[in-house]
């Protein structure tokens, strides 16, 4: 049974805090190692999990996530391994999304993937290179199963496109708050606040109650706290990946570092 991420966002909202959304690509460092890492992140305080589907041509990703995805691909990770990872993480009861470039879904078959994701207990998809105006097949397949459709808005988006995007999104809308690829950043962006404000204005009329998650390269609790002051969700990816890359071959140490990072971030979204 699939659980929408909106459940997690509502719970966080009721607690008067932002939700913590954690990302790792599937199959990294191995399929089972990835499942263990994601499970540890859930136990340490992630409210929503995003599982990346490793892809050969990840144009929106910076070097950290690229390296992890490439490592997973080199080890032979398959789309079915991603679904297995979803099943294992969703079994914890934490809403679990897949973040994927579009071609692997089209190749698997949009209907077939939607059904497999639903059967695995996945909440839905985040589609970084698919905008609602080019997504009729996915929108139909997701609507038939009440799967979350997380589309992205960017600082360069016009108000008209933000309205189009929020109207088409379910679960949350993903604000990419820097103009650039994924990656941890020391300073937070001054583009984020205005983008979230414009997005919230659009949501009032297009999708009342739709949460706004912000991806901006957050890597510690203090940055998470800052983003949590204006966003409904704080999305952290590269920092988790970096933590695993920094502990090659030592799963225990990696796990401890992941838990420490998650706890710091979870503290941040609560402050």
């Amino acid at each position: 049974m699939s659980t929408s991420v909106s459940v997690a966002f509502e719970k966080a909202r009721a607690d008067g805090r932002a939700a913590l959304v954690g990302y790792l690509p599937a199959g990294f460092p191995t399929v089972d190692g990835g499942i263990a890492a994601l499970t540890a992140m859930v136990e340490a305080g992630c409210d929503v999990i995003e599982i990346g589907l490793p892809y050969s041509d990840p144009v929106m990703d910076g070097p950290t996530i690229q390296a992890a995805a490439q490592q997973a691909l080199d080890a032979g990770v398959r789309t079915t391994d991603v679904l297995r990872t979803v099943e294992a993480v969703a079994a914890t009861g934490t809403p679990t999304l897949v973040m994927t470039y579009w071609n692997p879904i089209e190749r698997y078959g949009v209907e077939r993937f939607a059904q497999a994701l639903y059967d695995a207990g996945g909440a839905g998809l985040i589609t970084p290179d698919l905008t609602p105006d080019f997504a009729p097949e996915w929108i139909a397949a997701a609507d038939a199963r009440d799967l979350d459709k997380v589309f992205l808005v960017a600082p360069s988006s016009t108000d008209e496109r933000i309205a189009l995007t929020t109207a088409a999104s379910r679960g949350f809308v993903y604000a990419t708050a820097v103009m650039g690829v994924t990656g941890a950043r020391a300073a937070t962006s001054d583009l984020a606040g205005p983008l979230v404000a414009r997005t919230k204005r659009a949501i009032e009329t297009t999708a009342p109650g739709l949460p706004v998650g912000v991806g901006i390269g957050v890597s510690d609790g203090a940055q998470a706290a800052e983003v949590a002051s204006y966003a409904d969700g704080v999305i952290v990816g590269s920092a988790f990946v970096r933590t695993l890359l920094d502990h090659p071959g030592d799963l225990d140490a990696a796990r401890r570092a992941l838990v420490a990072l998650t706890e710091d971030l979870a503290q941040g979204v609560r402050s």
Binding site: M60, W102, D129, T131, L152, V153, A154, R161, T165, T176
Partner: peptide, 21 residues
């Protein structure tokens, strides 16, 4: 919308929102 050979056939624009503008 950039479709050759009919809507949904070939071409289109499968791109990050950040580049749409």
């Amino acid at each position: 919308h950039g479709w050759f050979g009919g809507a949904g056939s070939f071409g289109g624009r499968f791109m990050p929102e950040a580049l749409i503008a």
